[in-house]
Nucleic acid binder design. Structure first.
Lengths: 173, 173
DNA sequence: TGCAACCGATTGCAAAATGCAATCAGATTA
DNA sequence: TAATCTGATTGCATTTTGCAATCGGTTGCA
């Protein structure tokens, strides 16, 4: 896909790539949620994307070089979507965006705990996370002695908050 | 203005604020271009925003707490728009966004030189810039012995590139 | 073998957002 | 007083979005 190219300004061009209401949501679910299939993205995101919009955005993101698509060997009709390096390098931007939104917007506690952790982890954590994504999506080698994955760490924090808020659950899990 | 609040996720809420094609362009022109009036924003941006969209987005950004509007004392019919702290803290995000776009998208040299400088300046430069914006827009005191303003520095670099590219101009300015 | 469930989409349609040009009333300038 | 500039507003055609239904093929299970 070619950009409209309203101007050659880096900010404008970035907006032409993901300056809509869904592209970055899809990337967020792939990056932080680990989703790789159409249905996972369709049913997984709390915002409830429509299937035609999802199909359109996946196609667009592929044409822009942010995603690739491959056949899932285990299921003949399943397609598996992978992030490219171009998309993986969005991690610091998403971290900043999450941090900004957490400060200025009415975020919910359980959904902002991950942004908080990612902010506190800072660039070292982002780099570790990007390496893990490169491993998952690009098949790059991964440093073995690196402890639990960043995604697992973020997910555990999320679960802890949800458990703490759920009625009857043990807050001191 | 109330957000649609598709979800309380910080990234989603951030997208609901400026996840469209124009809001961040307007903020970019105010932050980096120093534009404060309707006409400056209308005619100044190279992307060419329509006046009804500009009016709508200014209103929306005001309702979201990103901008304020006041009468310009020098011209009775002129309105002057100011950034709030909420908008000023977008500077690091814009810096990251510009850096990302410069790497991955077909940016033009003259329009990406500012992003490059801002990236090289890093957080210290961003902080200085934000302080200058707080001075301009919020009337905060400014450290006096701080040299030329960040905006002037960025603008000078832009002019130098433009002069170097212009036929007949002196590249070694 | 049958059959329901699931796969990645596609289609049709109404509603909303966008882009564009013309226009507005008041204030300023010449 | 006439032209120009101010921040908008209006009307209208085009585009995008949101939503529900549906599609042909695949899979898992009885």
């Amino acid at each position: 896909m070619s950009l409209d190219r309203r101007s050659g300004c880096p900010i404008n061009l970035s907006l032409e790539v993901f300056g809509d209401r869904w592209s970055l949501i899809i990337l967020r679910d792939m990056i932080f949620g680990g989703r790789r299939h159409f249905r996972e993205l369709l049913n997984g995101s709390i915002e409830g994307i429509a299937s035609n919009i999802l199909a359109d955005r996946l196609k667009r993101l592929m044409e822009l070089g942010m995603l690739t698509k491959a056949d899932d060997p285990s299921h003949k009709q399943k397609a598996i979507y992978s992030l490219t390096e171009m998309a993986i390098t969005l991690v610091p931007i998403l971290a900043h965006l999450g941090a900004w939104g957490r400060v200025w917007l009415p975020t919910s506690e359980e959904l902002s705990i991950r942004a908080e952790l990612l902010e506190k982890g800072g660039p070292p954590m982002w780099e570790k996370f990007m390496d893990e994504l490169r491993h998952e999506h690009l098949g790059m080698p991964l440093d073995t002695a690196s402890g639990p994955s960043v995604r697992a760490t973020l997910q555990a924090a999320y679960q802890a908050v949800v458990a703490g808020k759920a009625p009857g659950a043990s807050p001191a899990a």
